[in-house]
């Protein structure tokens, strides 16, 4: 059975570990920038959907939650 992979988590991870953030707005700005870049790319619609989904997921998180995840992904970053 071929399982569908949700790549949006990968995108989410990339956004969260992109740099050191000081607040939620910074994270969202990067997320939005990545989404915008992806939207402009000449790539499959499914790929763009991944970024949209990632942004949606990102937007659902509080800053504390984002920090938690960042800490999980890269404990030494804080």
């Amino acid at each position: 059975m071929v399982r569908k992979i949700d790549y949006s988590f990968k995108v989410l991870e990339e956004i969260l570990t992109f740099k050191k953030y000081e607040n939620r707005e910074q994270i969202m700005a990067v997320g939005k920038a990545m989404l915008d870049i992806a939207e402009k790319k000449d790539c499959k619609e499914e790929y763009k959907e991944i970024y949209r989904d990632a942004y949606k997921k990102l937007d659902s998180l509080t800053y504390d939650e984002m920090k938690e995840i960042i800490d999980i992904l890269n404990p030494s970053s804080n």
Partner: peptide, 21 residues
Amino acid sequence: LEKKVEELNKRFIIGQSPANV
């Protein structure tokens, strides 16, 4: 970010996922 998007787009084909929910 542009670079990352390009890298990610390539990786989508390969198939990885960092998380389950």
